[in-house]
């Protein structure tokens, strides 16, 4: 992707942002008491309250059917809410739908495109649809930033899946939105393209665009998000700064590969709550990684007690729990 084009694009976005001076602390999206019951009776959202900060990357995680897409769809106007309120930069998304929707760009989960249109036409169409006057220079910048310029005259049906996803992003950026929803943006794309997209998302965030993404790839949230929300069963289970969440819920494990297998954990080591694994040839010590400094002293004590008990080890390694572990634990806990 062309970073210089993306920078130009960001510059243009900033210049066109009438709200650039607004407080960063002010939520750009406020969702309160949002409820959605589908015609079949499925209660997809249950009194959801959520605030999205201006300029952040917010990752919404949740298992299949948790309500991620429904939540995005209600905010973007694709699904009628059953109750509650959504405000986008202060505008009610139902009553003031023109102002609210004009601020939002949406990249849907499915690769939905007019198959026989050209890249240029479909991106230009999106800009017009969102009420903006034609601006070929902006469309050119968007296409160049997403490495689509060479494909501008190609019909969408001839593009690869990854290219089609880029086109969806280009369509969403065509009207210079201040808020971008990415619903599973890298589903089914290769690793290289995924990393390219992460770069694009970060650069958009740097230009002041607020990004809300749903993903199944925990790695994606871990890599990019400033804050993380977990939704399960239609309810927001947790919203936390990513770093704080990792600190709060993260645990560390020390695995010792023993010289000689043990039949059981010696009584002298009972205080450490050790686990035996790999037929007694590994000792696993799980400890709290959030209290800086504490872990060092407890490991020193453990190693000393092991030595005293005559237990020798040939190797060791440590591992910090990933966001995926935290997410799985959270969802398991609440179900």
């Amino acid at each position: 992707m062309d970073p210089s084009s993306l920078n130009d694009l960001h510059q243009a976005s900033r210049l066109n942002d009438p709200d650039a001076s607004r407080s960063v602390a002010e939520p750009v999206i406020s969702i309160s008491g949002l409820d959605k019951v589908y015609a079949g009776g499925f209660h997809a959202l249950k009194a959801v309250d959520l605030s999205i900060r201006r300029g952040e990357i917010f990752a919404l995680l949740g298992p299949n059917g948790a309500g991620k897409t429904t939540l995005i769809s209600v905010v973007c106007g694709l699904v009628n809410p059953s109750g509650g309120e959504v405000r986008v930069d202060g505008f009610d998304n139902v009553r003031d739908y023109r102002q609210a929707r004009a601020l939002i760009g949406l990249v849907p989960q499915e690769l939905t495109n007019e198959a026989f249109e050209t890249v240029w036409n479909t991106v230009s169409f999106s800009r017009g649809l969102f009420g903006k006057s034609p601006d070929p220079a902006h469309i050119e910048r968007v296409l160049k930033s997403l490495a689509l310029w060479d494909k501008r005259n190609n019909r969408l049906i001839t593009l690869s899946g990854g290219m089609k996803r880029r086109v969806l992003i280009a369509k969403a950026l065509s009207h210079e939105p201040r808020i971008l929803f990415l619903d599973e943006p890298t589903a089914g794309v290769d690793v290289e393209l995924r990393r390219d997209m992460w770069d694009v998302v970060r650069q958009l965030r740097d230009s002041g665009v607020t990004i809300i993404l749903t993903t199944h790839y925990i790695e994606e949230a871990e890599e990019m998000a400033d804050r993380i929300g977990v939704i399960n069963g239609g309810q927001i289970v947790l919203v936390e700064e990513k770093a704080a969440l990792m600190r709060k819920l993260g645990s560390k494990q020390l695995t010792l590969h023993l010289h000689a297998p043990l039949a059981e954990v010696p009584v002298a080591l009972a205080d450490y709550d050790l686990q035996l694994a790999a037929d007694g040839s590994e000792l696993i010590y799980t400890y709290d990684g959030t209290r800086d400094g504490d872990e060092g002293s407890s490991i020193t004590a453990l190693l000393g007690d092991l030595d005293a008990a005559g237990i020798a080890f040939k190797d060791l390694h440590t591992r910090q729990s990933s966001l995926e572990d935290i997410f799985v634990d959270l969802v398991k806990e609440r179900t």
Partner: peptide, 11 residues
Amino acid sequence: SGSIYELLSAP
């Protein structure tokens, strides 16, 4: 085709 999402989400 599913592209109606764009129409419904447009201002």
